[in-house]
Amino acid sequence: MPVVTRDLLAARDLAAELAIRAGCLQLERRDTLKMGAPKAHANDVVSDVDIASERLIVDGIHAAWPDDEMQAEEGNGRGGTSGWSWIIDPLDGTRNYISRTGPWSVCIALYHGDQPRMAVVHDPAAGETFTAVDGGGAFLNGQPIAASSGPPLAEALIGISFQPNVRTKTRVGTVLRELLPLCGDIRRVPAALNLVYQASGRLDGGLALDTNLWDIAAGALIAREAGVTLGGRAADYTPELTIGAAPSLWAELAEKARAITAG
């Protein structure tokens, strides 16, 4: 892999600017959006606003770093030769966005090889921009954030995110049946916001099941930089299973989550 230096703060600033611009586009075009055909399954929806947002982000990054790879959910990705990869979800939570029933976000992460180095998650409706640079802490609108103090599981607020296909919804039914009686309460939120809400202490822990890399890449780095402990089926989190928790809650939640999702 070529050795390429990168100003991660400049990358963060550009990613935040592009995410905010995409968020403004989403707010402006919400009343006039046009739906496309579902992708992988009936609940995997996409609109012309998703596609326009992705093009805005991809074009902005390509203008600054034309040799970088871009992995983008809606098909506007590009190959690269620099060793740096941008992981882009232009609208995480499309169902919430189009139905006006919950939050959504714009997610941009920068990897060097297989290591996340910078991340931005922007919530357009709330006007909140979560950012992190590897080793530099996590921030919300420029102010430092940190994971919760971690109450016991019986009092903890846990986020859950999942791919809404039939197989995964069946698995989630088991998770809800088994986990809800053990914790304080559960909130369903899109994967990126699940992770940044843990980073800001709004959630004490969370699970994401059967997601894609672009759903979790940005949020996971922000959560890690805020002090959230992350893992999956084994030590490392994966799109198949991402578990996050405040450090004092981690062992208890991870044990229960791994057992419940093992089937």
Rank of each mutant, 00 (worst) to 15 (best):
M1F: 13
P2R: 14
A11K: 07
A11Q: 05
E17Y: 10
L18M: 06
Q26A: 13
E28G: 06
E28F: 04
L33E: 13
K34H: 09
G36R: 11
G36P: 01
A37S: 12
A42N: 05
A42P: 02
A42I: 07
A42G: 08
N43K: 14
N43F: 12
D44T: 11
D44H: 13
S47A: 10
D48E: 13
D48N: 14
D50K: 10
R55Y: 10
R55S: 07
L56K: 03
I57S: 04
G60V: 06
I61Y: 02
H62Y: 10
A64H: 12
W65V: 09
W65S: 03
P66V: 14
P66C: 06
P66F: 04
E69T: 15
M70T: 15
Q71D: 15
E73F: 06
G75I: 08
G77A: 11
G77E: 13
R78P: 11
T81C: 03
S82A: 10
G83W: 09
S85I: 10
S85K: 13
W86H: 05
I88K: 07
G93D: 14
R95H: 08
Y97T: 11
Y97V: 13
I98H: 11
R100E: 10
T101R: 11
G102P: 08
P103L: 09
V106W: 06
C107R: 04
I108L: 06
L110W: 02
Y111H: 09
H112W: 09
H112F: 13
H112L: 10
R117I: 05
R117N: 05
R117G: 01
R117F: 03
A119R: 02
V121C: 03
A125D: 15
G127I: 11
G127H: 11
G127Y: 15
E128P: 02
T131G: 03
G136T: 03
G136M: 08
P144V: 01
P144S: 07
I145H: 02
S148W: 03
P152N: 13
P152S: 08
P152T: 13
E155S: 11
A156F: 01
S161K: 07
Q163Y: 12
P164G: 07
N165F: 15
V166I: 15
R171S: 11
G173M: 09
L176V: 15
L179V: 15
L180R: 15
P181L: 08
C183R: 03
I186D: 04
R187E: 05
R188D: 07
R188A: 10
A191F: 01
Q198G: 02
S200W: 00
S200L: 01
L203T: 02
G206K: 01
L207I: 14
A208V: 13
A208S: 15
L209C: 03
D210P: 04
D210N: 14
T211A: 04
N212I: 05
A218F: 03
G219C: 03
A220G: 02
R224M: 00
A226P: 00
G227S: 05
G232H: 01
R233L: 08
P239S: 06
P239L: 04
L241H: 00
T242H: 00
G244F: 02
L249D: 09
L249A: 10
L249F: 07
L253R: 00
A254I: 00
E255K: 06
K256F: 01
A262K: 12
G263V: 15
G263Q: 12
